[in-house]
């Protein structure tokens, strides 16, 4: 499978938020403002790419050779949790400005199901190492695209006159549904390219 197909697939066609429903909690929680949404997106791209690489290594060099695939969930979540902690410490040491930008988003990323999701998808699709990394990067970009676009919509929604019962989460979900319709268009657009 070519890298282009993986990238288009994960960014647009199978967008993590709108098509696969991964990472909905941060998508709803951190999309009130464009600036925080961008920060969260960047942090997710960063961690997702690293997590794809490192879980691939753990899965293929540790779990598979010893026949321990059934420990996948436990190992992956621990690896991701430690990775996030580690990344946080490293960034804090080597790049304080980057830490200021991403720091507050890193702790909540551990329970972002998109990170574990991309690791599991990589394994289930039998991606090779580079394909996994590219898929992680593309999935992160797809998440960022979704959350940044949605933050733009949501900043407007704050001033919209909606019925009291629809305020907040309900109207956000319905708007996300409409955006999901838009993303659905990509499904056919790239059908020729994808398997």
């Amino acid at each position: 499978m070519s890298f282009v197909a993986i990238i288009i697939g994960s960014v647009l066609v199978n967008n993590f938020v709108f098509m696969r429903f991964l990472g909905i909690c941060p998508f709803l929680g951190v999309s009130r403002q464009l600036s925080t949404a961008t920060g969260m997106g960047m942090a997710v791209v960063f961690v997702m790419t690293l997590a794809s690489a490192i879980t691939w290594v753990f899965h293929h060099l540790l779990l598979v050779p010893f026949g321990l695939e059934y420990l996948q969930t436990v190992v992956f979540i621990l690896v991701i949790a430690s990775l996030v902690q580690f990344v946080e410490m490293v960034i804090q040491k080597i790049s304080p400005p980057l830490y200021q930008a991403l720091g507050i988003y890193l702790p909540i990323i551990t329970t972002n199901c998109a990170i574990l999701g991309v690791a599991l998808i990589n394994v289930r699709q039998h991606y090779a190492f580079l394909e996994s990394v590219v898929n992680g990067l593309a999935a992160g970009i797809g998440f960022t695209l979704a959350i940044v676009l949605f933050a733009g919509v949501r900043e407007r929604l704050e001033f919209a006159d909606v019925p009291p019962a629809m305020k907040g989460v309900p109207i956000a979900l319905v708007s996300a549904g409409l955006m999901s319709v838009a993303f659905f268009g990509f499904q056919n657009l790239f059908r020729a390219l994808l398997p």
Partner: peptide, 13 residues
């Protein structure tokens, strides 16, 4: 997928 967002949004509402 679009139906999921809309249904859940309306259910919360």
């Amino acid at each position: 997928p679009p139906g999921a967002f809309i249904t859940l949004g309306l259910a919360v509402a």
